[in-house]
Design a protein around this nucleic acid. Sequence first.
RNA 1: GGGAUCGUAGUCUAGCUUGGUAGGAUGCCAGCCUUGGGCGCUGGAGGUCGUCGGUUCAAAUCCGGCCGGUCCCA
Length: 482
Amino acid sequence: MKKDENFSEWYSQIVEKAGLADYISAKGFIVLRPYGFAIWDLIKSYLDQKFKETGHLNGFLPCLIPESLLNKEEKHFKGFNPEVFWVTSSGDSLLSEKLALRPTSEALLYSIFPKWISSYRDLPLKMNFWNTALRAEIKSTKPFIRNSEFLWQEGHTAHANKKEAEDEVMTILYLYKHFIEKVLSIPTISGYKSNKEKFVGADYTTALEGMMPDGKALQLGTSHNLGLNFSQPFEIKFLNKNNNEDFVWQTSWGISWRLIGALIMVHGDDKGLILPPIVAPIQIIIIPIYKDVNEHLVKDHANRLRDSLLALGYRVFVDERDEFTAGWKYNEWEMKGVPVRINIGQRDIENNNVEVVRRDNRQKNIVPMDNLSKEIEKIFQSLQTDLYCKAETFLKEKTKVITNFDDFKGILDGHSGFIVTGWCGNEDCEVRVKEDTGADIRVIPFDSKDLPTGPSMTNDVIRDCIYCRKKANKLVIFAKAY
RNA sequence: GGGAUCGUAGUCUAGCUUGGUAGGAUGCCAGCCUUGGGCGCUGGAGGUCGUCGGUUCAAAUCCGGCCGGUCCCA
């Protein structure tokens, strides 16, 4: 399957052939297979540790939310209503109140916060939940990218003052950014969402936006400042040091298994997945190459090699299956994206070396046994940075500074990408552009130095709003999005 | 939201126009052979043709509803 020729088909093929997920006969729902779940597990354990290091504790929330609760913050409710699944009966009898399958847990969790928060001593309250959310996707679903139920993590915090909440929003956003860029090797652009695109119920939303190989944007993580928007309707109050009642300042934030989708799209090639080492369920695959006469000798060597690599902390697997040839196994493990493969046969044993193949460029190297761990470490390092650089180069190539609307439309008619331009800040212009081109404001970068196009040129070049030509007060990135 | 297209064995698919015995590949099982880029040979098992209904002596095939997948456009 060719990634360049039919990207969408290629993507669905990888999901199935690499054994990540499968379909079930309910629209928009998928089944995660062990290999796909293992990737999620690795993402989860990495981030979970970071959350704990920054003072967050995990909890568990029910998946049903009474309508009245969801309804309490009006805008929030309206925003989610079209995609909420409702439970209306138990057995044959109708429920007295409809229950929503949680599209997100703010309302549910915040209804109970008042019981837990009464004094400034109870703050900050910082919790996280690893669960799923349900949002009905009527049309165009895509595994990991758009599903009616998805695995995610939602963090929720309450703070004594505005500044602390603002800091929390940024702490988490940069924690995500570090993970996505340094661990998943996917470059991102960080910034604010426009009012139209922000989380319903937030004062403002910060986000990380990535670019997929078809030039479309994919939101990879969000962190919201909820201000007092929930604490007021839910009456989450505390006594401050001066014995006055105050409302808490809140944040919420999340990433989802979309990150797996991004990994597939950004790094994969015609041979299949390519996984960065930290999130690879199997980091090293050992293929013993043997004949009947030396089968035991070679397999013993392979297993000893595995044991020594396991002892060094690597996730290693020896593919001892007799029913497949070596060549078949190469293809299989390349499809699954295993970063490093080690071939070991009679002649390697005699020469006290092994053949090491890295997944991304499939370069083969004969490596002496004594150098092996050093070589693996080197490959892991360079894989991590090479994957990032490749994606970053692409991002830069596909990001253009545009100052007039005709050029803007022209670019989006062909293959899309990111467009850096000016915006007056008026939502009408944003809506019009979306109607005319299908692109909307993905992110309002915090700083022009974060732009892939570099700061020097953009500050001077962009003066007007791309649509109404009035003075631009924001530098924004427009793109089509998933 | 609009359009197109598909659903046949675990998987991929032929057959559908012109109604009449479901065929292949791959995988699976048994036995041999072999393994440095999807090896080879022999034999075997595996099917409510997505689902519900209609037309017909007869439906995988024609018609309609529903369910699900995929793609394109908004």
